[in-house]
Design a protein around this nucleic acid. Sequence first.
DNA 1: TGCCCCATGAAGAAAGGTCATCAGGTTACG
DNA 2: CGTAACCTGATGACCTTTCTTCATGGGGCA
Lengths: 340, 340
Amino acid sequence: MKKGHQVTMKEIAKKLGVSVSTISRALKDSPELHPDTKKRIVEMAKEMNYQPNLLAQSLRISRTNTLGVIVPEITSHFFASCISGIQDYANKRGYNVMICQSNETLELEKANIRTLVSSQVDGLLISLSRETNKYDHLLDLYNREIPFLLFDRVNEDIPVSRVTFNDEGGAYQVTKHLLETGCKRVMYVSGPEDLYISKKRKEGYLHALAEFGITPDPELVKISDLTSEGNMKIANEIAFMKQRPDGVFCMIDPIALDLMFVWKPMGIKIPDDMALAGFTNNPASAVIEPPLTTVAQPGYEMGKLAVTHLLDQLEGQASDDPISIVLETTLLPRQSTKAL
Amino acid sequence: MKKGHQVTMKEIAKKLGVSVSTISRALKDSPELHPDTKKRIVEMAKEMNYQPNLLAQSLRISRTNTLGVIVPEITSHFFASCISGIQDYANKRGYNVMICQSNETLELEKANIRTLVSSQVDGLLISLSRETNKYDHLLDLYNREIPFLLFDRVNEDIPVSRVTFNDEGGAYQVTKHLLETGCKRVMYVSGPEDLYISKKRKEGYLHALAEFGITPDPELVKISDLTSEGNMKIANEIAFMKQRPDGVFCMIDPIALDLMFVWKPMGIKIPDDMALAGFTNNPASAVIEPPLTTVAQPGYEMGKLAVTHLLDQLEGQASDDPISIVLETTLLPRQSTKAL
DNA sequence: TGCCCCATGAAGAAAGGTCATCAGGTTACG
DNA sequence: CGTAACCTGATGACCTTTCTTCATGGGGCA
């Protein structure tokens, strides 16, 4: 199967007996053209179904009006929502979006960056994979002056703008909620320790403990690799602890959902035996029984803010200085934690 | 903020005192080059962090090695899974993927097609929006010999390959399951009638009724516009019917989930008062109480098959003749329907 | 009435970065 | 000495945009 030939300006020019530059001028509505000539050209272009070749155009003007987006996993409802916001607002400003996923690996993250840079995207929006613990590839991007911005999963040492949630504040809120509703031994189930959101949400957890005068117990912090298998392994570890926690705060909802899946056939009652809370507000968190207490982080809003800021920078409407945009989160108490 | 300058072959050529064509030959590992010359060039290119400009390359070879994908909504778990499969298998064969969403509107579907065609994508994979009831834009694509393939939401009149599930078979299975488990009045809640999957799933529903010698009752078919509001409106209509159905088959899971959301506070018991089944197997369908009986349609597998076939056609490894690939679905009985 | 100048509209060339092809130069072998 | 092979350079092509130059017509002045 051969890709069909598309009509070029040269063909229109030949048909009308004018030059290519006249075609170009007509189609960009230039004043340097006689109205009759313009009309003839516009009509012929339409009749011949002419569409500009964006490759040639972009090569000539050194701009593609395309942004690259890299997310860890496209099937995550949160990242899909971010993408949706990015795409809607990029389109509103005349930009296209090229979306890639890293499948949570550093190697694919690097490969995606290479491909997008070769494709001459005007800028990049990147959320780091869970495996990313080295940042040379980002520093390289920075040194080559390729515009990019980090969102949600970021690194604070890279001097570019970033958009995050108030991870510490959200984690503080949910941990406090667990403590206020009677929990004495609150556990934090974290993701990989290098991950920004793991660190920040742990800080919020510790902050709430401190405020209640509780000394942190290392036994009450567990690390998940963020796979379903990893989560279920931790569910078992917790279930078989000599002294179980009475409240569990999970870094992201999928962890909590997996804990519930494992605990239900074991007869563990939520919240009676152990209260449970997450972070993210996945669709499934609202419909599970009992509905999961969680922290809402609106992905669409994040995407919108991230792309708006990057485009403002690209178009000279915002300073190039890196800024940090922090979105507030909202605690959503549901039935997986006790009532106040 | 200006996008940084990227290194060109011309710059390497100047640095090494060779021609641009020698650089090109070295970097594509051509045999028409002295090994020493090649080595010098490859090393310098690496040192200068050279990356080919894919715009220029694609313009010259008339190929981008990029596929365009258009889905109705990226936040749908099913479509996100399709995209994941498409991207993984496209990447394996050296292709990039440019993903767009139509937000379930025909207008955006058309705009996305235009943009992707202008971007000179080598082919398109399209799943139609729920609003799409005219197909001129697809016929135009076909007449211009632009390679494309339809998946999941297709149109049978367009002479291109398509990948679908056995929608009729899946719907037949789930309706039969409802009938076999005691339902006497089974309702079908459909999406827009023009939509391929609405029609096919209705056919399966009617087929199962016929097999049980049941005359279809027009009052037992309702049309949803596939919005949450539309679904909840139908939930209320059903609840207030003079004679309710005792089993409800919903065209896609999100309809069923919304029915449950509305019925739960009304005290309607599932499956005791009304059994309920869906189609899609969203993540939430497994965790809701009671877990929803549904039909599994693996999006990743669909994406994989779709992109593999399109690429086979593009690369001359498969005939250009349109074929229809039908994936089997699997009934997943859960607690929203009665046990056999 | 003729000539010159200015304005308008258009053509042509060069540029963007890369690839493919042809031609040329040099060396070795018959 | 002639021919073939190897290696390299130069050039044109891909499609579009932008800038400079050119041509023509009209108006004004002598």
